[in-house]
């Protein structure tokens, strides 16, 4: 299954000066991929996600979803804003109910999704409003997963989370990514969160797709394409080390390889220092 965008443009009529939110964006993502949608605040990321989820009709261009074997589900920024049910369980069941499934299936999906996001069982009957910010984020994720999406689109999922909350979310997403075999598209302005989670990066600046590449390659070309954008801290560090003459590879393919480079450098230095 894949989602294909061809020359998608979105223009918001706003008073006398219409706002071009997206300008001729073309791309394809496939189920099983983990993709980052990276760009500054207000660069059109939310609009692009809404178009992909079929919630917003583009002004121009074509959206095609081939091989429909599951829904495309979007979790908006701060998804707890949509909570309305009396218990967490009912909140999570809302999506599957809208898909007209039978009660046993709805129940099973709710259990599966809540287990997958690792929310403690004693919280399942609690009102979602009473949970902490981190727990609410898990409930929202479970509500999306219960719809068995083929593509899961997340809009700025770290907004309002603190360090531990962000780390827990990253681990949960990492697990879901491998176990649920879905396509994951995460929009964020934070390159470090995205880097640890995704392999491919789409860079959106001012409604235009500036790059569609790997993180390693993006770190190399970022300065030329969008100098105002940060690159992941680890890649920036390796770059700086390489410039200082250290024997490291400046653009490793994965975060694991990046860490390996750093540990290797450290081991060699220690050895050199001792000898």
């Amino acid at each position: 299954m894949e989602i294909k965008l061809e020359e998608i443009s979105v223009v918001y009529a706003r008073g006398e000066a219409p706002l071009k939110a997206l300008n001729k964006v073309s791309l394809t993502i496939r189920a099983g991929e983990a993709v980052a949608l990276f760009g500054p605040v207000g660069s059109g990321k939310s609009t692009l996600l809404q178009v992909m989820a079929g919630l917003l009709k583009p002004t121009a261009g074509r959206l095609s979803v081939c091989g429909q074997d599951g829904p495309v589900v979007l979790a908006i920024q701060e998804p707890q804003r949509g909570f309305f049910a009396a218990t967490v369980r009912e909140e999570v069941a809302f999506g599957p109910e809208n898909l007209d499934l039978d009660p046993a299936e709805i129940e099973a999906r709710g259990t599966g999704a809540l287990t997958a996001v690792g929310l403690a069982r004693e919280k399942w009957e609690a009102p979602p409003q009473r949970l902490s910010g981190g727990e609410q984020r898990r409930v929202a994720l479970a509500a999306a997963l219960a719809m068995k999406p083929r593509f899961l689109l997340l809009d700025e999922p770290t907004t309002g989370l603190d360090g531990p909350g962000e780390e827990a979310l990253r681990q949960t997403l990492q697990r879901i990514k491998t176990e649920w075999a879905l396509g994951l598209l995460v929009a964020s302005h934070d390159p470090d969160f995205l880097y640890m989670l995704t392999d491919r990066v789409l860079v959106l600046v001012g409604g235009e797709l500036r790059a569609d590449t790997t993180w390693g390659a993006w770190a190399q070309e970022a300065a030329a394409v969008a100098p105002d954008l940060q690159i992941p801290f680890l890649l920036g560090l390796l770059r700086r080390l390489a410039e200082a003459g250290a024997p490291v590879q400046a653009a490793p393919a994965t975060p694991a390889a990046a860490w390996e480079e750093l540990f290797r450098l450290r081991r060699e230095r220690e050895k050199g220092g001792a000898g």
């Binding site: 809404q50 919630l55 589900v73 908006i76 949509g82 999506g95 809208n98 999306a144």
Partner: peptide, 20 residues
């Protein structure tokens, strides 16, 4: 607008039964 978007993303549509 945001909340309507959130609930549409969760599959709300008004073409079903009255209860729904």
């Amino acid at each position: 607008r945001e909340i309507i978007l959130a609930q549409r993303a969760r599959g709300v549509n008004f073409k079903t039964s009255w209860i729904k």
